[in-house]
Computed example of a mutant assay.
Amino acid sequence: MINGKLLKQYDMPVALGITHLTTIAFLLNSSEDMPSWVAAYAYFFASTCILLSNIFQPTKGFLSGIAVATFIATVIRSIRISSLNLHGPGVDFPLGLMGAGAGVIAALIYSKSNTGWAIGGGFTIGCVGTLGGYLLTMIFACNTVLYCGPTFSWGF
């Protein structure tokens, strides 16, 4: 059984391991439908957020939540780019990652203000904050200034 001390000790290696394995998997599968820049952006975003968040000593599992949320955002992007016929790489994914970064900052502030969370709480806060920032930015940007296909656009 993993207690809180072990999770805090192994949160950084687990988060970096998830980030590296995600990048390797997407780079091995890179093609015209799924270019390698998607994996590179996701890798640099996740590793930067993990390293910068680690400075503020977040709650247990927070860093792994960031890594899993970045993996989910990359999977969403790869499904969208392979199923749609969009011309060019677009700026929606880097823009969504900027929103995810804002979500990481908001989740980090929230997790530092609430210290009563259990072990899974840090993971949940990190994952929901990152994915929430990504999805809110994508929905807002794809309905105001960009066309991102029918996934995020409401047809305006």
Rank of each mutant, 00 (worst) to 15 (best):
D92W: 01
D92L: 05
D92I: 01
D92Y: 00
D92F: 00
D92R: 00
F93P: 00
F93T: 00
P94A: 12
L95T: 09
L95E: 00
L95G: 04
G96V: 07
G96Y: 08
G96L: 04
G96P: 03
L97W: 08
M98Y: 09
M98I: 15
G99C: 10
G99K: 02
G99H: 06
A100Y: 03
A100F: 00
G101I: 04
G101S: 15
G101R: 05
G103D: 09
G103C: 09
G103F: 02
V104P: 01
V104W: 01
V104S: 08
V104K: 03
I105H: 07
I105C: 01
I105E: 05
A106M: 07
A106T: 09
A106H: 02
A106I: 10
A107S: 15
L108S: 13
L108P: 03
I109M: 10
I109S: 07
I109V: 15
I109E: 10
I109K: 04
Y110L: 15
Y110S: 15
Y110A: 15
Y110I: 15
K112D: 12
K112Y: 05
K112I: 14
K112S: 11
K112T: 13
S113W: 09
S113I: 02
N114W: 01
N114Y: 04
T115A: 11
T115L: 10
G116A: 12
G116Q: 13
W117Q: 13
A118I: 14
A118T: 10
I119K: 01
I119Y: 08
I119S: 11
G120N: 11
G120D: 03
G121Q: 08
G121Y: 07
G121T: 06
G122S: 08
G122A: 10
F123Q: 03
F123T: 02
F123M: 07
F123E: 05
F123G: 05
I125K: 00
I125F: 10
I125E: 12
G126K: 02
G126P: 08
G126V: 11
C127W: 00
C127E: 03
V128R: 03
G129M: 05
